[in-house]
């Protein structure tokens, strides 16, 4: 169970988020600059809230007046908006980056098979398409077996056909892994297709929680 209840002062407004979620996909929708990415950054530990708390399965990520849990210890998979693949490493090195032990090989080969990227392993990020980058970044985020998956506009750079295929893959992976997934998007269609629940934020305020 992920518990989020925090406040953070941003330049234009105060971001106030309060929700709970289980092993489901929750979409966060809102216009640009509404605080969606800040929400993910606070959960991942890249930014710290000013007050409140964030916890996952009883482990405090952030609790007011306590030292925040280090990013490295949060076991969060984070897919950045433009994927942030390491440009100097091959696809295989990107995916294997966090896994140094051989016992992860079965998990990795299963991931590459599911995401259909086995033929890309020797290529570099600048040699593959946007859709392929998205799948590689997803494989990398899942390679370290995270307890929570954060997706920041994962489909924004994809054409309709690739977007649809990647969405199906994400649903398949979620069925197999069954971990909480927060999907940030500005497209209500993505939220409707993928999420059980949808949170809308405007200028840092949660305006509604809907069942898409």
């Amino acid at each position: 169970m992920l518990n989020v209840d925090f406040r953070k002062q941003l330049e234009q407004f105060e971001l106030h988020m309060q929700f709970q979620m289980g092993k489901e996909i929750v979409a966060v929708v809102g216009s640009s600059g509404s605080g969606k990415t800040t929400l993910l950054n606070c959960i991942a530990g890249i930014m710290q809230p000013d007050a409140g708390g964030i916890s996952l399965h009883g482990t405090d990520f952030y609790k007011e007046s306590k030292k925040p849990l280090k990013i490295q210890k949060r076991r969060v998979g984070y897919l950045f908006q433009d994927y942030a693949l390491f440009p100097h490493l091959s696809v295989e090195q990107n995916i294997l980056y966090a896994t140094s032990r051989n016992n992860d090989i079965a998990h990795i080969s299963e991931l590459t098979k599911i995401l259909d990227i086995s033929l890309l392993l020797s290529k570099y990020p600048h040699q593959i398409s946007g859709g392929e980058k998205q799948r590689v970044a997803l494989a990398r985020a899942l390679a370290a077996k995270p307890d929570l998956l954060l997706l920041d506009e994962p489909f924004s750079a994809l054409d309709d056909e690739t977007r649809s295929r990647c969405q199906s893959e994400l649903l398949r992976i979620h069925e197999l892994w069954s971990i909480p997934v927060i999907l940030v998007t500005h497209r209500i269609e993505d939220a409707q297709k993928l999420a059980k629940r949808c949170i809308r934020i405007e200028k840092g305020r949660m305006t509604e929680q809907l069942q898409p």
């Binding site: 530990g45 990013i71 998979g77 990398r140 390679a143």
Partner: peptide
């Protein structure tokens, strides 16, 4: 972002 991605992967 590259360093942050690596951090979320648990790397020192």
């Amino acid at each position: 972002r590259w360093e942050n991605v690596a951090r979320t992967m648990g790397v020192s």
